[in-house]
Write a protein that binds this DNA or RNA. Sequence first.
DNA 1: ACTTAAATACAACAATGTTGCGTTTAAATT
DNA 2: AATTTAAACGCAACATTGTTGTATTTAAGT
Lengths: 137, 137
Amino acid sequence: MDLSQHIRERGLKATPSRISVMKVLESDHRAYAHADLETIFSTMDRVTLYRVLNDFEETGLVHKVIDMDGVTRFAYCKHSCPDTHHADEHVHFNCQVCRKMFCLENMPAPSFNIPKGFKAMGQNVLVFGLCKSCSAA
Amino acid sequence: MDLSQHIRERGLKATPSRISVMKVLESDHRAYAHADLETIFSTMDRVTLYRVLNDFEETGLVHKVIDMDGVTRFAYCKHSCPDTHHADEHVHFNCQVCRKMFCLENMPAPSFNIPKGFKAMGQNVLVFGLCKSCSAA
DNA sequence: ACTTAAATACAACAATGTTGCGTTTAAATT
DNA sequence: AATTTAAACGCAACATTGTTGTATTTAAGT
């Protein structure tokens, strides 16, 4: 699959920064924090990285989740998502030891029976504990 | 109910700061951000307020949730919670307009069937959308 | 190769949260 | 009621996460 093409399809220019960030996100369906990617791409400008991630999110290329520490994380959208709604809303798992966040792709977020008067637009379902490698150690 | 007594029962000193913060939290089972309380108690030191909230959380007087914006919020524990585990883990609702966060006390967080190898310790279940007053307006 | 809107780099700023330390105070003891 | 002391407070400094403004550069269409 051509990453440049994938990016351009959403109306964004396929710049080197975007292509390399997308390559990481696409290779591993984990939710990455800005700080993670800043470590990987040590020469990339902080602000550019923030904007790359926000642009990806706004065009539906990635989805956004808040982790246990209140930090925003971004994960590749396996299914193409429209700009407005992310079809693949699933449960995320956040490890308390290594702090990694995993997309549980085949575990859709349940729909809740919210009290009358409230209007639900989406949800953020986060389970925390120990991931595979950390519970083994 | 005596708030001072309630605070002392958890091994904390019943100081004026703690009593007044607890009074607000206890009066309305909503999850308050540090910023909300700083507005209410404009003379209270920022750091003291952070420490009051963290102490309450560590002793099980309140529970902690992360909101849509990644901001930590604290809500009164209706049921007494042991230090380690909060028995009243329920769904929270975060309004996208007024940003208020509501405890849906009678909606327990579901237990998820996490993949083999992962060890779940707890969850943060957040539904967002429009609250009663904001969807009416 | 030219053009232009989009993207980048850099500086400055804002919000949230933490740490260290000297001073004050709640509450137990005398 | 006075004394004691660990706990809590107030203040300064700092760390991290994230945003905004603007001049410069570049992807990609003409």
